[in-house]
Amino acid sequence: MPGRFFLTRPMSEIAQALNVRCDVDLQPPRKNIQPGQELIVLTAHGLTPMRWGMIPVGRVNARGRPVMETIINARSETVFDKTAFDGVGRAVVPVDGWYEWTGEKRRKTAWRIASANGSPLFFAAITDSWQAPGGLRVDQFAAVTCPPNADLEPIHHRMGVLLDPADIQTWVTGTEDDAKALAQPWPDGLLQIEEASDVDWSGP
């Protein structure tokens, strides 16, 4: 499942791939997008900035207890059923790819994962809005995950739900049943995986 994203192509190219207007501010190339930072996502209203990580203020679990941890990723198997996700919206996160790690602490290997043909990747996400102290509204999202395909299985036990461009509108505006049907592992052989030894993990 995505622990960091990267997006180095212009947002105008992303907008063209999605066939939407690009009214958002341009962003510099980003090789290390971390949870808690802002990304541009596609909602039913177009491209909009959102914070990666849902602060679940007011949300409770099935036992009625408050959900305390910030939600970065949500499991596709339960995201439509858990009380903690009642009322969330759906969006798509367009990126060039993401990173995963293998190995023991202090000896971890970072892996860069991208589309084999160089096209953008579109992650399924859920969205929410948090009313921060002082009345500030923070729009936020969490990536939706599923079991890995054969490409990712040696690296991680989960992967983000990736969407074919033809299915993006169904995820964003379709019925819950239609969205559930899209929450499947990406077909094998469509990803490029390489060691990411050139990334400054403290930088943008």
Rank of each mutant, 00 (worst) to 15 (best):
K180N: 01
L7H: 13
G135A: 04
P35F: 03
V138Y: 01
Q131E: 02
R51P: 01
I71K: 00
F122I: 01
Q16L: 15
F6H: 12
L163H: 10
K105E: 05
S12E: 09
A125W: 13
T48W: 00
G189K: 14
L190W: 08
F80P: 03
T102Y: 03
T145N: 07
E38N: 15
L190P: 04
D167A: 14
N32Q: 06
A124D: 02
V138W: 00
A84T: 07
P154Y: 00
S76W: 07
D177Q: 15
G87R: 02
R107S: 03
G160P: 01
L39G: 12
A84E: 07
L191N: 03
R4N: 11
H157Q: 15
M1V: 13
G174I: 07
P187K: 15
D188Y: 02
D96C: 08
A179I: 13
E176V: 06
L163A: 05
S119Q: 14
W171E: 07
A17S: 01
Y99S: 06
M68G: 03
F123Q: 09
I40N: 11
D167S: 11
M54H: 00
Q140L: 06
A132H: 02
R59P: 02
Q140Y: 09
L18T: 04
V92T: 11
A132M: 11
R137A: 08
V92W: 09
R9I: 08
T109R: 05
G46V: 10
T145Q: 10
Q192K: 05
A110W: 01
V20A: 02
L152Y: 07
F85S: 04
T102A: 09
D178C: 07
T8W: 01
R106C: 03
A124Y: 09
E194W: 06
P147D: 12
G174E: 11
F141I: 02
G189W: 12
R75P: 07
E77K: 15
H157K: 01
G89R: 15
N32W: 06
S12V: 08
T83D: 03
N117C: 07
G160I: 13
F85Q: 04
V24R: 12
G97A: 01
W186P: 09
H156I: 00
E195P: 03
A125G: 03
L182G: 14
D25I: 08
T175W: 02
G203D: 13
G53M: 12
R75V: 15
L152I: 15
I113T: 15
T173M: 12
G46P: 13
C22V: 02
A150C: 11
V41K: 00
D177N: 12
L18D: 03
Q34Y: 07
W201K: 00
G135D: 00
I72C: 08
F5T: 12
W171R: 12
L39Q: 13
